[in-house]
Simulated assay, not measured.
Amino acid sequence: MSAEQLMEADRAFNAMGQKEGVGKAFIAFAADDGTVLMRQGNLPILNKTELIDVFSKVSGSSLTWEPLKAEIAASQDLGYTFGRYKIRDGNEIKQHGVYGTIWKKQPDGSWKYVLDGGGPTRSEVQKP
């Protein structure tokens, strides 16, 4: 398993968000066993049941993101991605930011996130 494969999982997560809606993507890519979502200015979401309740009400796809770096543990069952995001209102960019996501390999071989969070930056973060 290479770090590039984990970056592809993160890109697929974003692609689903753009195609089917950010709420559906956050639900679909969340691990069933212990998901924590850190949200700027809000209490964290601590489990998948709560995540489904919150994100089933989210519509639109004003949030886009791009992974910039990934690493996978020697055990090959945990990894992280780090990247940048944009929040748009129509064509106008309302916010730039960075995020970090911890991924856990599932029994079926797919990757699901177990921790996700991020925060705004003054300007767009450039690729490392």
Rank of each mutant, 00 (worst) to 15 (best):
F55I: 02
Y99E: 01
S2R: 14
Y80H: 09
R122N: 11
N47A: 08
K94R: 15
N91D: 14
W103T: 02
L63A: 03
L51R: 00
G41D: 08
Q106E: 13
A28I: 04
K94C: 02
L68Y: 11
V22G: 02
A73P: 00
S61T: 07
L6N: 03
R39D: 09
L78T: 10
F26L: 11
P67R: 06
I52S: 11
W65I: 04
M38E: 07
E71S: 14
G41N: 12
Y85A: 11
Q95E: 11
E71Y: 03
D108A: 13
E92N: 06
I93Y: 01
G21S: 09
G17Q: 05
K112A: 14
N42P: 01
E4A: 15
Y99C: 01
G60Y: 09
S61W: 01
K19C: 00
W65M: 10
L37Q: 07
T35H: 02
E71W: 03
I87T: 00
G83C: 12
V54D: 05
L46D: 10
L6F: 08
I102F: 11
T121S: 15
M38I: 14
E4V: 14
I93D: 01
V58D: 02
E8I: 10
V22Q: 01
S59W: 08
G100V: 11
K104W: 08
D116T: 04
D77R: 08
V58W: 03
N47R: 00
D77Q: 10
G90I: 10
V58S: 04
G21K: 00
A28M: 06
D53S: 15
M7Y: 11
A15Q: 08
R88L: 12
I27H: 00
T101C: 15
I27M: 10
E8H: 13
D32K: 12
Q126M: 10
L46A: 09
G118N: 09
K105Q: 03
S2W: 07
Y99Q: 03
T49V: 13
Q76M: 12
Q95P: 04
I87M: 02
K48A: 10
D10A: 15
K57E: 15
T35Y: 04
D32I: 07
G34C: 07
G21I: 04
E92H: 10
A15T: 06
F55H: 01
G23M: 04
L78W: 07
G79H: 05
Q5D: 14
I72S: 05
S75T: 15
K94T: 11
K94L: 13
Q18T: 13
F29L: 12
T81A: 07
I27R: 05
E4F: 14
A70I: 05
R39F: 10
M1P: 02
D77E: 13
G118H: 06
Y113I: 01
G117W: 12
L63W: 03
K105T: 03
S110W: 12
F82G: 08
A70M: 06
T121V: 11
E92S: 07
V22A: 08
G60M: 08
V125D: 04
N91Y: 09
S61C: 06
G34I: 08
E92K: 11
G100H: 06
Q106R: 09
F13C: 07
P120C: 05
G21W: 00
G21R: 00
Q95F: 03
T35F: 07
G118Q: 06
L63M: 13
K94H: 02
K104A: 03
D53K: 15
A73Y: 13
